[in-house]
Simulated scan of single mutants.
Amino acid sequence: MNNSKSLLLAGLVCCGAAQAQISSTVALTSEYQMRGIGYSGNDPALSATLDWAGESGAYAGTWVSNTDSFRDGDPYDDGSDIEVDLYAGYNLQMANGMRYGMIGYYYYFPDTNYNINYTEVGFSAGYGNFNAYYYYSDDMISTSLESHYVAADYTFNLPWKTDLYLMAGHAFGEYYRETALTGAHEYSNWEASLKRSFGPIDTKLSWVDTDLHGRFHNSGEYLRNDGRFIFSVSHTF
């Protein structure tokens, strides 16, 4: 069993020991994007979570969304139309205001043309409105190739209960260098978002973009990576 699967299972096991708080979030977004790449065929995406949080800082949950990354007949088409993410982790808040976290993911895609399931581990550190992240997979999209992603974000609290969220990240590693096999390339991405809640409804308007260019730049329907606005609404129960 690889390290990322071990971490995920360990998080799930530890979660049975403390008092729990259960929550669920339903979200509708104009496009499902992750790290600047669109994964819903430029169509809206509906997602839902079911989360457990313990008093100790341990947590676990699942996230489900529709997805569509390739046109029918594309040589890279995996046939996926549903993504299920399982995750577990631990957050630690220090007395000096620093906070640290770790998380394990298992990305599962049912009923695909070939196996694209994979695991990933992440680590975070933050203070105040600033956060930094590092994510690692030793088997990105089941290719046996390593993937790394680093990112940082900062939230400005504005008047009228509005937040300005700024984020920048960079994806690199073997998976992104083996372009003939994966069709990918190392890249940076960024996001600027305005967030505001209206009663029980949370809204977010984002501008996302990447530095992918040349034959890797894509402003079409699938796997978009150009600059664009994305709007989402969500509610947490």
Rank of each mutant, 00 (worst) to 15 (best):
Y127C: 03
G126N: 02
G183I: 01
Y175Q: 04
F130V: 08
Y133H: 12
S144F: 08
K161Y: 08
Y154D: 01
D139N: 15
Y136E: 06
G126M: 09
D153F: 00
Y133I: 03
S124L: 10
A152K: 03
A192G: 12
S137F: 07
E146G: 11
A168W: 09
A152C: 06
T143Y: 12
G173H: 02
N131A: 11
G128T: 10
N131D: 13
S188R: 03
E146I: 10
T162Q: 00
S188C: 07
Y149F: 08
E174S: 13
L181F: 09
G128M: 08
S188M: 11
H148Q: 09
Y175G: 07
H148Y: 09
F156C: 05
P159E: 04
Y127M: 12
V121N: 05
T155V: 12
F172L: 06
L166E: 00
A152E: 03
E186M: 04
N131P: 02
H170Q: 09
T182F: 07
A171Q: 13
F172G: 06
D139Y: 01
T182M: 01
L145R: 14
P159L: 05
L164Q: 02
A184I: 10
I141K: 13
H170D: 03
A171R: 08
G122Y: 06
N189W: 15
D138Y: 11
D153L: 06
Y175I: 05
Y134M: 02
D153H: 07
S188E: 07
A180Q: 15
Y175F: 14
F130Y: 13
S137H: 06
